[in-house]
C-alpha cells in the first residue's frame, strides 16, 4: 500500500492540518509503511465476526436529563485565544 502525495494532501485537508510542501513526501512514506503493517489484517477472514465496541460488551449508560454542571463560562473561557461578550471569536465566516 503506497500513498501518493496528492492523497496525503487530501487527508491533511480533511484533518485540517497544514503541512509544509517539503514534508509531504516524508508523510507519504511513513504513512504508507504504517498502512503496509496494517495490511496483515487482510489475510484474516473476519466474515461473521462482530466488531468489538466495548471489551465487556457494556452498553452506553443513560442518565436522567437534568442539569449536572453549574455555569462556569468565564472560567472555561479563560483559556480561549479570543473572547468577546462571552463568545469565542473566529475570523469572519459569513460575508
Amino acid at each position: 500500500m503506497s500513498l501518493e502525495a496528492s492523497e496525503v494532501k487530501k487527508i491533511a485537508h480533511l484533518a485540517r492540518i497544514a503541512i509544509r510542501e517539503e514534508d509531504v513526501a516524508g508523510y507519504a512514506e511513513s504513512i504508507s509503511s504504517i498502512l503496509g503493517l496494517v495490511e496483515q489484517m487482510d489475510a484474516v477472514d473476519t466474515s461473521g465476526v462482530e466488531p468489538m465496541a466495548h471489551p465487556q460488551e457494556a452498553v452506553q449508560r443513560l442518565r436522567e436529563d437534568v442539569v449536572s454542571e453549574p455555569n462556569q463560562r468565564e472560567k472555561l473561557q479563560a483559556n480561549a485565544p479570543a473572547v468577546e461578550a462571552g463568545l469565542f471569536l473566529v475570523p469572519q465566516v459569513i460575508e
Binding site: L3, E7, V8, I11, A12, H13, L14, A15, R16, I17, A18, I19, R20, Y27, S30, I31, I34, L35, V90, P91
Partner: peptide
C-alpha cells in the same frame, strides 16, 4: 485558523497518527 493552528501546535508523530486515522 484550524489548519495552521493544528499544523503548528501538533508535533510530527501526532500529525502522522491523525492523518492515518483520518484516512
Amino acid at each position: 485558523l484550524y489548519s495552521r493552528s493544528r499544523g503548528e501546535g501538533f508535533g510530527e508523530e501526532v500529525k502522522r497518527r491523525i492523518l492515518v486515522g483520518a484516512y
